[in-house]
């Protein structure tokens, strides 16, 4: 892959987060929510979208303020910005559904320490224009959501015999309880990493 000094198109900024630099499957960032709240497809999707929203808003603000914030206090100000949007998201989710808020629990507040968001702010938004930062945030955010959904779907299908709470097997399906337990998150993540690594090695060979 040759990124150096090549002309980076705006679609590229968007696409890279979805596949080539997928935050979960390639960069292995933000493992805490990935493993903890991907037990059902619904939780995974909600968590992914919440993170994507925080990522988008913080990227915008960081990019806007990039010439205004002195270098010495940049990390502190990024954290402040991220924390603000996490709190806003927390209220918003509560207002959408108390049930959903309960099942995501403390992990909404923990988006603050999701290193994906801080790394995008530091590595991208603080050096690029708003337009690019938005594209980058959208790509990374949706890539994160996609990865979480992949995990959540597998775990819900095996662990509960359903997808988005709709049963997909006939009566009497034996659910694999381990899949909705934290251990199942590790198994599923390992499985996806295995598949994606195998695909990329094959691609590199050919």
């Amino acid at each position: 892959m040759s990124d150096d000094k090549q002309k980076v198109t705006s679609t590229d900024e968007f696409i890279k987060g979805l596949w080539r630099d997928n935050p979960v499957f390639v960069q292995v960032l933000g493992m805490c929510p990935t493993l903890a709240v991907s037990n059902t497809a619904e939780n995974a999707l909600a968590m992914g979208l919440a993170t994507a929203f925080v990522l988008l808003m913080s990227n915008i603000l960081v990019s806007l303020l990039r010439n205004f914030v002195p270098k010495q206090v940049r990390i502190a100000s990024y954290i402040l910005i991220i924390a603000t949007f996490v709190t806003v998201t927390d209220y918003a989710i509560q207002a959408i559904s108390v049930e959903l808020h309960k099942s995501l629990g403390a992990f909404i507040s923990l988006i603050v320490v999701n290193c994906l968001i801080l790394s995008r702010a530091e590595a991208f938004a603080s050096k690029n224009t708003i337009g690019k930062s938005i594209l980058d945030a959208l790509g990374m955010g949706l890539g994160f959501t996609l990865a979480l959904f992949c995990l959540g779907a597998v775990r819900e299908i095996l662990g509960n015999g359903s997808i988005f709470n709709m049963p997909i097997f006939s009566e009497g399906f034996q659910s694999w309880i381990v899949m909705i337990l934290p251990a199942g998150g590790f198994f599923t993540l390992a499985l996806w990493l295995l598949i994606i690594n195998a695909l990329q090695t094959r691609k590199a060979k050919s």
Binding site: P70, K127, T129
Partner: peptide, 11 residues
């Protein structure tokens, strides 16, 4: 659009 503006290396 494509040129990246870095944080100025301030004193």
């Amino acid at each position: 659009m494509s040129e990246a503006s870095n944080i100025e290396m301030q004193n």
